[in-house]
Structures are given as structure tokens and as C-alpha cells.
Amino acid sequence: MRFNSSKIQVWLAVLALSGVLLIPKSLAETPLVYKYKSKRGIPSFSDIEPQNVNYKIVQVGCFACNVGSMVNWYKTPLNTSAYSDLILKNAFLHNVDPALIRAIIHAESHFKENAISKVGAQGLMQLMPATAKELGVKNSLNAEDNIQGGVKHLAKLLKKYRGNIKLVAAAYNAGEGAVKKYGGVPPYGETLVYVDRVKILHSRYRQTG
């Protein structure tokens, strides 16, 4: 396992000075780990993006779900260019605010097409295999398939919760069953911070037009 802690510390320090992060508590805040195969075909992991090899990005959880995250969500850079055509196309097809789609993608995978969580959620909008199958998604690691399925799911949740973004975000994170059980946003630490961060990101992406 190849982790260069000194480089991680420098990277976090730069982000802290730029206002993207507050002062980090530990190296555990680093969100991305790269999984790839060595020349001998041995599965390997690294905090540094591998060069000239195929790799997948493995995350501890969704990008915005870490209760102890030190990301400053009011200042962290937005991404209005990545997958713009696909986002706008599916926003129009399913009548979903493109700013909400960007907020969910940002919160879920930080726009990493090959992101895979520890629980098996995949792709830009972190679709679980069962959900992807239900939505007719053939390949969750394909941006077009993933966004189409994810936005279709968002449209369903928006209709079910009558446009209540907090409940939509809560259901996207914890499941519709959990929202029904608690009659609102479930009191899970991960879900509470996720809902709050999606709200912040949604507002900021709407302001970008």
C-alpha cells in the first residue's frame, strides 16, 4: 500500500490556506484513494493518481457524508463545466433543476466518474447496484448512463416529496424507508450533514446560473 503522508499534508495545507478547507484534524480527511493493478497484476492502492494504468477511485463514503469533514462548503470550488451537456439534457428530459443535479454529483462523487464507495455505490451520482438495475442503468461507471439514471431517480423523489429538497436529499442518502420511518430527515449524523451540504451546494450552483 503506497501512501505518501508528507504529500498529503502539503496538499491539505495548500487547501487550508486557500480557504477550501479549514484546519484539518487528521489525514483521514483525504477523500480519495486510487485502486489499480501493478505490473504484476497485484491490486494496489495509492493516494496519488496512478499514471499510464487503469484505475478506480475508492472513497470512504460519499464526498459530503463525512461528519468530520473539514471542507468549507461555502467556499469549496464549484464545477459548472464537467458533464454540462449531459446534465442539461437530463434536466430538461426529467424537469429537474440542473443546479440540484450538480449539487448531488458534487456531494456524492465530487465529479469522479469512476468513484466507488465502500458500500458499493458507483459513479457520478453514486448509484447502488439494486437502484441502478431498477432505473435501467446498464453501466453505473459510464457518465451518460449514470446521470440519466440518477436524474430519473431525483425526478421520482421530487414528485414524491413535492419538491421538498431536504426530504429529497435525505431520501437520496438514507433511503425512502428511513424518511418514512422518521417522518422527515432521519437523525443519522451522516444524513444530517449531507442534507445541509446539498442545500448549500444547490444554492451556490443556482447562483452561478
Results as ranks from 00 to 15, higher is better:
G120S: 10
V71C: 07
C65M: 12
N146M: 01
Y83V: 01
K112E: 14
P50V: 02
K118P: 00
G120L: 05
I101G: 13
G150E: 10
V60N: 05
I105T: 03
V53M: 07
A115H: 06
V151D: 11
V119Y: 07
S69D: 04
D145W: 02
S69A: 14
Q122D: 03
N142T: 02
K89D: 09
H110T: 00
Y83M: 09
N142P: 13
Y83S: 01
N90T: 09
A99R: 11
A121S: 12
K138P: 03
I105P: 00
H94E: 14
P77W: 15
A91Y: 05
P50M: 08
L88A: 03
N114Y: 00
N66P: 00
L100Y: 06
I104F: 13
T76Q: 04
T80P: 07
A91K: 10
N72G: 02
L86G: 12
E113I: 03
C65K: 07
L100I: 06
Q126P: 00
D85A: 11
F92V: 04
Q59W: 06
S109T: 04
S44Q: 10
Q59A: 14
S69G: 09
V119P: 11
A82H: 10
V53T: 13
P77A: 06
N95D: 14
W73R: 01
P77Y: 15
D85E: 14
N114S: 13
N54I: 00
F45R: 02
L127C: 06
G61K: 02
N66A: 10
G68T: 14
S81N: 13
W73L: 01
N79F: 10
L141S: 11
K138W: 00
F92Y: 13
L88V: 04
N66H: 11
N139L: 00
N95F: 00
P77C: 09
G68S: 15
G123A: 05
A143V: 08
M70I: 04
N72Q: 03
L86H: 10
E108T: 05
E113L: 02
E49W: 10
N142A: 09
G123V: 01
N142M: 05
D97H: 12
C65S: 15
G61F: 09
P129C: 02
I104Q: 02
G120W: 09
A91G: 15
I101Y: 13
M125K: 04
N142L: 08
N54Q: 08
A82C: 07
A103M: 08
Y83F: 14
M125Y: 07
L135H: 06
P98G: 06
V71P: 05
A132C: 06
I87A: 13
Q126D: 01
C65F: 06
E144C: 03
N90V: 05
A143S: 15
Q51N: 06
G68K: 15
L135P: 14
N52L: 08
D145A: 03
V119G: 07
M125V: 01
D47F: 14
I104T: 03
A103N: 07
L78F: 12
E108M: 07
I147Y: 09
C62E: 12
F63S: 01
